[in-house]
Amino acid sequence: MPAQPVFSADSIGKSFGPRTILKAASVWAREGQITVLFGRNGCGKSTLLKIGAGLLRADHGVVLFAGRAYLRPRLPELASRGLFYLPDRDLLSRRLTVRAQIRAVEWRFGGTRSAEILERLGIHGLVDRTPAELSGGERRRAEIATAWIRAPRCLLADEPFAGINSSDAEVITEAFRCLAQEGCAIVATGHEVRQLMDTADDIVWMAAGTTHGMGTPDKASQHEQFRREYLGAARR
């Protein structure tokens, strides 16, 4: 019997004007596990994560986090209870140095591991630069470091592997595994099928405004419709 989710966005519906993006979509994250949300471009993965993080208001549905139900969640409230939302880009301010932004996280949530985490992510020598002075991969690693230093109960990561090279992706995968080992519940989205399937403990597939729990990556890759309509040649 799997553990109860720490986080779940349940039966979420969302329309933008006449266009319905989400009909009844759900995603969840369990302690120490990495849930990967797959789906085609524009199917509503980012919208679902933003609703889960309290950045967008759902038309219907409920967000459950750390034992509380929220009809209208707001990120500051969820964040103070342990949620961290990592957007597909620009988590960090372009103007302030990475060090200044990490200090803000340490001030708010404490933490004495920043030196170790920065070292593990290979950005300890870059902290006095602003994110605008970093490459895409370095910036992504700095963002992941910020999330890791916060030590969240739940991390919602929108396309963490988008636009970065394979060596950066390996470092980030390792960081996610470490975070999960420390008990963090992670939801990640993306299109990097091999990378994400190898990282995931649980797969959720989004299609036509709704979601399907696919189970473990092995189970998911045996699912005929999922293989045919999403994985294609990537997982044969």
Partner: peptide, 15 residues
């Protein structure tokens, strides 16, 4: 414009 809203929301700071 300089992407300073999200980190502080992630820190629990009320806007």
């Amino acid at each position: 414009r300089s992407h300073e809203l999200l980190l502080h929301a992630n820190l629990g700071a009320a806007p």
